[in-house]
Structure formats: structure tokens, C-alpha cells
């Protein structure tokens, strides 16, 4: 134990825990986790950012708690224990959202609750927090949630900009004067299937820049 404690808080290994989920090990585009909630909240930027922050909070805290308890949880009932920890954290987040951001919480509707079954959280608890110390687990949680969050925000950025012509409800396209020269909003971008196609295109762009991610036939 004393040997690992000497390791600096931001050693190269720990930085790597934080940065690989952003690209090489991205939860959405590479590990295929947590897509369920990712797509439905990306019509506008604001709910997407709020959900991303909520997931960062839940995931950091859940990883820390499970990592603290990892020696006491019997492996046979670990799934129930994990679900209870996540569900309690999500209840906290839900109550906070209802108290301070009521409108956004209405827009997110069931998707706050669905953070519980967001497979990224379960997946990282199983794969990482159960076998690692508290600080690396915390970084892993934050890194993965951030990797999830940035995809969410990119998708929401394009869908809101092209679909409604606004960004965070600020009428960008109107201020640029594009409507006067015949530009029109693409209402199609607001519809659910376009979220899937946007993510498909993001995967395409990411993998053509990072060719080692290409799947073999």
C-alpha cells in the first residue's frame, strides 16, 4: 500500500485513465455503452449539457463508493448492491434537478431515472471500480462520463443548430441573417432517427482519423 501511495496524484498512468475514454476507449463510439439515454436528450444543447453533468456526478460518486466497499461486497450480490448505490445517487440528482432546474427536469422526463440502467455506469463499476483503488476509480468514472458527455454535446450542438437554428436558445441563424438569403431550418434534424445518423457520422469521422479503431470484417 505504501508503495502506491507515493504515486503522484496526476501520474502518467492516472492521466491516461482520464484521457483514453475521450477517444480510444470512448464509451459511446467504441465500447457501445450508454447509448439509450444519449440519443433522446440531444434535440437541444441545454438538456444534453445538464444530463452530461448529471452523469459525471453520478458516475464519479458511484465509482468512489463501490471502490471503497469493494472488499466488503460479496460477489454474488454485487449487482444488487451496485444498483442500489446508483439508484440512491440518481434520486439525489433527480431531486436537485427538480428543485433548481425544473424546466430542464421536465424535458429530460424519464431519462434522469434511466441513468440507473445506463450501462456505462454498471459497466465501469464492474470492470474497474470493483478491482481498483479509490482515486484511480474516481478518475476512471469522470473520464468515462466525460467521454460520454462530449459525444452528447456534439450531437446536441449539430441537432439544435441545424434543426432549430438556435444554440442554447440563442437564435444564431437569425442573427447571422441567413433566413434573409433563403436559408431554412432542417426540421428533420429534430426527429429521433437523425440522432442515430448523427452518431453514425461521428463514428465515421472518428474512425477515419483514428484508423486502429476500424473493425475487422
Amino acid at each position: 500500500m505504501s508503495k502506491t501511495e507515493k504515486e503522484p496524484m496526476f501520474s502518467a498512468k492516472n492521466i491516461k485513465l482520464l484521457s483514453t475514454p475521450l477517444n480510444d476507449e470512448n464509451p459511446i463510439t467504441v465500447q457501445v455503452l450508454g447509448i439509450c439515454s444519449a440519443l433522446a436528450v440531444t434535440v437541444k444543447l441545454e438538456p444534453a449539457v445538464v444530463l452530461a453533468v448529471a452523469v459525471v456526478a453520478v458516475m464519479g460518486a458511484a465509482n468512489v463508493i463501490i471502490s471503497l466497499l469493494r472488499k466488503t461486497i460479496p460477489s454474488r450480490i454485487r449487482i444488487i448492491v451496485q444498483l442500489v448505490v446508483i439508484a440512491s445517487l440518481v434520486i439525489l440528482v433527480d431531486q436537485v434537478l427538480k428543485a433548481f432546474l425544473y424546466d430542464v427536469s421536465r424535458q429530460l422526463s424519464v431519462f434522469v431515472g434511466l441513468i440507473i440502467t445506463n450501462c456505462i455506469i454498471m459497466g465501469r463499476l464492474e470492470a474497474f471500480a470493483l478491482g481498483n483503488r479509490v482515486w484511480p476509480s474516481f478518475l476512471d468514472g469522470i473520464g468515462n462520463a466525460a467521454g460520454y458527455g462530449w459525444i452528447l454535446i456534439v450531437v446536441a450542438f449539430f441537432r439544435e443548430l441545424l434543426g432549430s437554428g438556435t444554440l442554447w436558445d440563442y437564435p444564431v441563424m437569425e442573427k447571422l441573417g441567413l433566413f434573409n438569403i433563403g436559408y431554412e431550418n432542417n426540421g428533420f434534424m429534430i426527429l429521433p432517427p437523425m440522432a442515430l445518423i448523427t452518431v453514425g457520422v461521428i463514428i465515421w469521422v472518428q474512425r477515419s482519423r483514428n484508423r486502429k479503431l476500424i473493425e475487422s470484417k
Binding site: 463510439t29 457501445v32 426527429l191 429521433p192 432517427p193 437523425m194 440522432a195 442515430l196 445518423i197 452518431v199 453514425g200 457520422v201 463514428i203 465515421w204 469521422v205 472518428q206 474512425r207 477515419s208 484508423r211 479503431l213 476500424i214 473493425e215 470484417k217
Partner: peptide, 18 residues
């Protein structure tokens, strides 16, 4: 190549959704 596997599945799902 870059679309193989996951990428094309997303796009096909989008088309099915439409």
C-alpha cells in the same frame, strides 16, 4: 472501413426509425 460494424448499424437503425 471506418463505418464497418457499429457505424453502419447506427445509420441503418436511423433509416429504420425513419
Amino acid at each position: 472501413g471506418p463505418l464497418r460494424g457499429l457505424g453502419i448499424t447506427f445509420i441503418v437503425t436511423g433509416l429504420m426509425g425513419i
